[in-house]
Design a protein around this nucleic acid. Structure first.
Length: 689
DNA sequence: CACCCAAACTTTTTT
DNA sequence: AGTTTGGGTG
């Protein structure tokens, strides 16, 4: 038996679960690891992977699915270190372990689908659409079906996509989804159904898959016995991280592939399930054990290595208030007399001031900015703070919120690449053509029609007859697209060539083209890291780089900076000091999430996630009034928030309530105890006497 | 038919 | 606040 000295008993139990088997290395039934916040989940998972590898399970037969690419990389490094350490103990030589099958559900789906494309009637050159593309395509379909000109307003494209996505991911009928989640769209049931049908047809026609399709196709592929058998045969072990955030579609495809659960390990914490808007279903993890017979083994990790006990006390108290779940109690050996703070401030200006005060004080006493963070429910909550930070010249980086790929110019450039890659993909084509001056929706459509007639041969673009489009930009584009498509231009030059063409458009269309060009150059550089156009395009949509508008800006020149993050993006992270903004009803829970109990429960878990990020200091900030980004009616822009419903009595006993700034005594109080010094009324009266 | 401007509308979180 | 829609102009 290998020494696993740095694991506690429970962790070891989880890491080593299963019997050593001569053929398969390790033979194990289904296993569920409930890993509370900060209980060493990644370490345990990495040890489990390492345990498998050192017991002769070959690395390429392990399928490891994580929530994000970042988590995957971290795990990979950890596995490597552990395996190395263990082999060194046994005096064996170490060759780095590569776990080739590691990534998000979506990226694994992408790989498998390309492998099996031919067998399932899928164009192996399919393009992956991001959410925006999908929404645009739906919009187009909606126009074609004539739903946009109806008397009553048809749901917006993004709403439509949300509805569609939920149907797919929750594996439910449209009617049911409308009833539960989109009751205001119920009247449009028939039209929506037709819309989605046409949308699916369009996607097939244009050889493109949206995010949901990646899972959906995988799920259907797993339903074909021959293919399922092939896939199953390739993997001895499947480890799924963040299982609490999987949706029904993901759970069902796992079940199809590995019906008896052998070799299946899932890890998660139901108390941290915060992705229901993406159709994640906590019931997946709650019901996991009973899915099998005999039921899966459950190991729960409760010893926390991150936070001080007072922080865990308040977190535990919060969790106890929820209506369902495993409700594990976290405990820690880190004692402290400092209770987490609940700070009442007047408004968001004071809130920002408080944070900056505390933040700088902490830095003075040796805590770097990057060991502190500010967390919030929605990304605009930090607006006021960002302003204040900028004024005080405090460098920060914001996670969550606007994405690199959502910037118009980046979308422009990528759509040129996508169109060149797959001329059938009309959404990109449309976007590309409309960039040109004097080309609007109608002309673009007509050009695309011409292209379709010519079998999507990009060379035929030059033959499009029109007096309108004859200009140099058009001619260049007609040459550029086919040379990219047929790789006449080598891959390493493609992006810079395309960017070169786009520069002119950028300069005429945007005032701030200078800043935007920086992003384009960044993109060109990034493309060099991928070895083909196809990989570049799919990996970029599957794993979008975090916000980058200010990537070249000042903050990164400084190596110490504050982290601002939405709670969702803070998953898995930890900081010494954590500030949570706007802990008040309306923001926390969010006013849009007060619909039903399930949503409220999730909001509570969100606060739980935020609290458990802190190692030493936790400040919950409660503004008495806060800014509401312009309501329909022009009323007061300030709204008085009431106390968050999550701060119940039992939670409050674990918090120290303070006020900031320390209340100044009023003038009357300062003079308190003295008799009236004078009566002004007399002097006023006297002037009329 | 393209383009520009004004008015209306909608808000969370993200693979 | 920033996007989407509608109307008017050239």
């Amino acid at each position: 038996m290998l020494a696993m000295t740095d694991l506690n008993t429970k962790q070891q139990q989880a890491a080593q679960f299963g019997d050593i088997d001569a053929n398969k290395g390790i033979e194990s039934g289904p296993l569920l690891i409930i890993a509370g916040a900060g209980t060493g989940k990644t370490n345990t998972l990495a040890h489990r992977a390492a345990h498998l590898v050192t017991n002769n399970v070959s690395p390429e037969r392990i399928l490891l699915m994580t929530f994000s690419r970042r988590a995957a990389n971290e795990l990979s490094e950890r596995v490597n270190r552990i395996v190395e350490a263990q082999l060194r103990q046994k005096d064996q030589t170490f060759a780095p372990v590569k776990l080739p099958w590691m990534g998000t559900f979506h990226s694994i789906a992408n790989r498998l689908l390309r492998m099996y494309a031919q067998s399932i009637g899928l164009d192996p050159g399919f393009v992956i659409m991001d959410r925006n593309d999908s929404a645009d395509m739906l919009d187009l379909v909606r126009h074609k079906l004539g739903f946009s000109s109806s008397e009553k307003r048809f749901p917006r494209k993004n709403t439509c996509l949300d509805i569609y996505s939920r149907c797919v991911n929750a594996q439910a009928e449209l009617e049911q989804i409308l009833d539960v989640d989109f009751p205001w769209c119920k009247d449009w049931h028939d039209e929506l159904k037709q819309l989605f049908k046409t949308y699916v047809e369009q996607k097939i026609e244009q050889a493109c898959l949206d995010y949901d399709d990646l899972l959906l196709y995988w799920y259907h592929m797993a339903g074909v016995p021959d293919i399922a058998a092939l896939i199953r045969k390739d993997f001895d072990h499947i480890l799924v991280d963040e299982y609490q955030d999987t949706n029904l579609l993901q759970a069902s495809l796992l079940q199809r592939l590995f019906p008896d659960g052998s070799g299946l390990t899932v890890v998660g914490d139901d108390a941290q399930s915060i992705y229901s808007f993406r159709s994640a279903d906590v019931d997946n993890i709650l019901n996991f054990p009973q899915q099998f017979s005999p039921p899966a083994k459950v190991v729960s990790l409760q010893k926390n290595y991150r936070s001080t006990q007072p922080i865990l006390d308040v977190s535990n108290a919060l969790l106890k208030e929820s209506k369902s779940g495993y409700k594990i109690d976290l405990f820690s050996e880190k004692k402290s007399i400092t209770k987490p703070q609940l700070v009442t401030v007047e408004d968001d200006v004071k809130q920002a001031k408080y944070i900056i005060d505390k933040l700088l004080a902490a830095r003075e006493s040796g805590t770097l900015l990057k060991h502190q963070s500010v967390l919030f429910r929605s990304s605009h909550h930090s607006d006021r703070l960002e302003l204040a930070l900028a004024q005080r010249n405090i460098p920060y980086v914001k996670h969550g919120g606007l994405k690199f790929l959502e910037a118009a110019h980046v979308k422009d450039l990528l759509s040129i690449m996508r169109f060149a890659d797959n001329p059938k993909h009309q959404i990109s084509g449309f976007r590309v053509l409309k960039m040109l001056p004097r080309i609007g929706p109608r002309t673009a459509e007509s050009i695309l029609g011409h292209l379709t007639q010519q079998n999507n041969d990009l060379y035929s673009l030059a033959g499009y007859q029109s007096t309108m489009v004859k200009n140099e930009q058009w001619t260049k584009l007609c040459n550029l697209l086919p040379s990219v498509h047929h790789n006449t231009i080598s891959w390493s030059d493609q992006l810079s060539q395309v960017a070169g063409w786009y520069k002119e458009i950028l300069e005429t269309n945007y005032d701030d083209h200078f800043v935007r060009w920086g992003d384009i150059e960044q993109l060109v550089r990034m493309s060099q890291q991928y070895n083909s156009r196809e990989r570049f395009l799919s990996e970029l949509t599957l794993d979008p780089p975090v916000s980058s508008g200010d990537l070249a800006g000042a903050p990164l020149l400084d190596d110490d900076f504050l982290i601002l993050s939405t709670i969702h993006s803070a998953k898995g992270q930890e900081w010494k000091n954590v500030f949570v903004l706007n802990v008040a009803d309306g923001n926390f829970p969010n006013e849009y999430a007060c619909g039903d109990d399930k949503l409220i429960e999730e909001e509570r878990r969100l606060l739980y996630v935020a609290m458990t990020r802190a190692k030493e200091e936790l400040h919950l900030i409660q503004p008495l009034k806060y800014w509401v980004p312009q309501q329909q009616q022009h009323g007061d822009k300030h709204v008085f928030g009431s106390k968050s419903r999550f701060l119940t009595e039992s939670v409050m006993t674990n918090l120290e309530a303070t006020t900031y700034p320390r209340k100044q005594p009023t003038a009357n109080e300062q003079l308190a105890g003295q008799k009236a010094l004078t009566d002004i009324r007399k002097s006023i009266l006297s002037s009329w006497a």
